[in-house]
């Protein structure tokens, strides 16, 4: 009965935080397509995961094996976070002061939980490089790492199920962008990751 224009603006203005996808290193490494959702300067950027889901943020738990400080004027830290399937390249610069301080403090090796934004670069030689810009990184225990492997495996399998149905818009986009991608590879990777946890 009552048309309330405030309702409209509130819904439009309602902030929805982008969820952090659970993705194994081997899958993130295969990303080749990055896009913006919308024309706006502040529209979020997504990388398209080969299992058919867009991702603006990821959550990973692995072992920080190496970290290096780089840059003279603009200090930034690079690190390698290893999961059962491969390696994530993470970085935190002066635009992420909190994340950089966290990363600087951590002694390698350590189990870490990383929340960050995936970024896709093309190197001069034409090859692609995926790195993760860290929003936060904390030291966690092995239990959390094991829980993450379960979580990442489950969500990877969920994505593959949706991929096989084949009707979701992101899935259609994925089939266009990655015509040779085979989800069975990622199912295998999930299995191998799970198998590394001792029963």
């Amino acid at each position: 009965m009552i048309t309330n224009p405030q309702d409209m603006t509130r819904k439009e203005g309602a902030f929805e935080r982008e969820p952090a996808r659970r993705v194994f290193a081997t899958e993130l490494r295969e990303c080749r397509y990055q896009f913006k959702d919308g024309e706006d300067e502040k529209s979020p950027t997504f990388v398209l995961l080969p299992t058919g889901e867009r991702s603006n943020r990821i959550f990973i738990v692995g072992t920080l094996t190496e970290k290096t400080r780089q840059g003279e004027q603009n200090i930034f830290y690079r690190g390698r976070v290893v999961d059962p399937t491969g390696t994530f390249f993470v970085m935190a610069g002066s635009y992420q002061p909190e994340a950089m301080q966290q990363l600087a403090k951590i002694e390698t090796p350590a189990f870490v939980a990383v929340i960050g934004k995936p970024n896709l670069y093309q190197k001069p030689d034409g090859s692609f490089m995926n790195s993760v810009r860290v929003e936060s990184i904390t030291v966690v225990d092995k239990d959390t790492r094991d829980l993450w492997v379960l979580d990442a495996a489950k969500q990877t399998l969920d994505r593959i199920d949706i991929f096989n149905i084949g009707t979701a818009p992101d899935v259609i986009k994925t089939k266009e962008q990655y015509p040779n991608s085979d989800p069975a590879v990622f199912r295998r990777a999930a299995y191998d990751a799970l198998a590394q946890i001792k029963m």
């Binding site: 379960l150 495996a153 489950k154 399998l157 199912r187 295998r188 999930a190 299995y191 799970l194 198998a195 946890i197 029963m199």
Partner: peptide, 11 residues
Amino acid sequence: TSEHAALLNRA
């Protein structure tokens, strides 16, 4: 552990 086993089966 049961969830782990179920996921191994699924994968």
